[in-house]
């Protein structure tokens, strides 16, 4: 019973990631694609949580934190690139 529920949850996350992938492919503007990528990163985090429950191990729990941090930083970098055109600004030469 529990195994069936966990597998169903994993399949549902796979379906959600596939639908976001469709939005990345057809997305009309760049921010659409970035939002869909952010959603994929966040869903990947929860898929890893389900896998670590399914395998009954606690070895994958660092991966959750690392993926969450990487997804956040990449979204910030993309939004700054869209807004200003550069990611890391230079210092003003005075």
């Amino acid at each position: 019973m529990i195994n069936i529920m966990l597998s169903a949850a994993l399949v549902l996350f796979g379906v959600a990631i596939l639908i976001s992938l469709y939005r990345i492919i057809i997305g009309p503007s760049l921010p659409d694609r970035v939002i869909a990528l952010d959603m994929i990163g966040v869903h990947l985090v929860s898929a890893i949580a389900i896998i670590s429950v399914l395998f009954h191990t606690t070895a994958f729990l660092e991966v959750i934190l690392i993926l969450a941090i990487l997804s956040f930083i990449s979204t910030i970098a993309f939004s700054k690139y869209i807004e200003r055109g550069v990611i890391i600004e230079r210092k003003h030469d005075s």
């Binding site: 969450a68 956040f72 979204t75 910030i76 939004s79 700054k80 869209i82 807004e83």
Partner: peptide, 26 residues
Amino acid sequence: LLLGIIFVFITSPVAGHLITRAAYRA
């Protein structure tokens, strides 16, 4: 896991706000 919960809860709305603002400015 607790740290992951807190981190996602704090950063995910901030990321949504930033990308929407960048989209409006663009």
